[in-house]
Design a protein around this nucleic acid. Sequence first.
DNA 1: GAGTGGTCTAGACCACGTT
DNA 2: ACGTGGTCTAGACCACTCT
Lengths: 234, 234
Amino acid sequence: MSAPAGRKTWQAVQAAVRARISRRDWKPGALIPHEAELAQEFGCSRGTVNRALRGLAEDGLLERRRRAGTRVALNPQRRAAFAIPLIRDEIEGKGQQFAARILTREMRRPPPDVQARLRVAGAAPILWLETLYTADGAPYVFEARWINTHAVPRALDADFTVISPNEWLVREVPFDSGDFTVSAMAADGRSAAVLGCAEGAGLLVLDRRTQHGAQIITSVRLVFHPGYRMHTRS
Amino acid sequence: MSAPAGRKTWQAVQAAVRARISRRDWKPGALIPHEAELAQEFGCSRGTVNRALRGLAEDGLLERRRRAGTRVALNPQRRAAFAIPLIRDEIEGKGQQFAARILTREMRRPPPDVQARLRVAGAAPILWLETLYTADGAPYVFEARWINTHAVPRALDADFTVISPNEWLVREVPFDSGDFTVSAMAADGRSAAVLGCAEGAGLLVLDRRTQHGAQIITSVRLVFHPGYRMHTRS
DNA sequence: GAGTGGTCTAGACCACGTT
DNA sequence: ACGTGGTCTAGACCACTCT
């Protein structure tokens, strides 16, 4: 009995249900008892059972539908949450010395694909920044960023030598959502030179777009040093 | 007024709070009113407010501590959930023809790093599989998999030509958790040959380990075709 | 010590989709 | 139509942590 008799917290119920699924008492695709029944079995209220099952459903372990009941998912392990920390935190968290160096800061006409990505019309110059972040002096990640200065004119006056572009934006500019893309590239001449690696090395690339309402605030590409890994458990 | 007056669902409360954060009525780092106060303001019970704020805290938008109250996070956008679909679903979802071809199936002695990764002692041979998945005949992803046949002896009898290793495992073997790592590599000779790409191309690599209790069931490496992207919105 | 979030309860009504 | 999950309520007690 993996459900301690005396307890009645939603975590205990969740753990018990998880165990049954894992142990295959309830097989993938099978219907499990409804909330009221489980509540009675565990000696708690239906609200507590609901809380427990809702969490499992959000994890993709259960599938719930009104009237149809709750089933064990046929294909779990469907999502993985990656932490996207501030680069500074990531480096300092390893006990290393963080530093940022602005390589380029200029107004530049965005090429057509960037115009689309930023949803800016025409090719009026906007702010373009290249920054290298280092850990104990070693290149860690190379950041190339467009800032939509039509949406954020104040960025023109910011001093990114005292605060990194990312930290400035997070602090100063409201936003509500974003999207991420992860891909890979072979190091070209410039990346290799900046990151101090061999040309042709495999590099992990994270593209990230930040928006406020319909407006895109910034679009940034992070090219990580060779060997970098993004990790998660679920 | 983004909060319709008559409603009192937790989604409405959450949307209203989200709007205030986004609009910077409540600035990053600032303390927001406590639950009872918000409940009164929104004309709902504290439970409803709790539900709304809890969700925002899970998204990393708020930071909550007992007694200390609830603050707007200084650095939101901290996690991104990537969908990890079955390869078959991903390919068929694009309307393409899915196919899997087993390239290698043999018992092999795991090298020391794999022994550690699978938590198997000694170098007794275990099952090793290489599979190429194609979309409309074009190489899509190259899978290299170790199956811990000490934990899953039945895998020895499975016919992976009629069901892919992944689908067989999901269906037949209980598991409860896993971990993922994303990285990049430059295509070596073998990868290039199998994926039909140029040597040196940048390839996205997903390593994934599946466990049941303390036992590792399988460890798999997916090497995607050049240009593959993992995408998410948050 | 006291204020805040975390949780449980018992009951109620509603939304939805299966039958 | 009806059974299931989804949600709201009002009240209560507890856990944590700041002062």
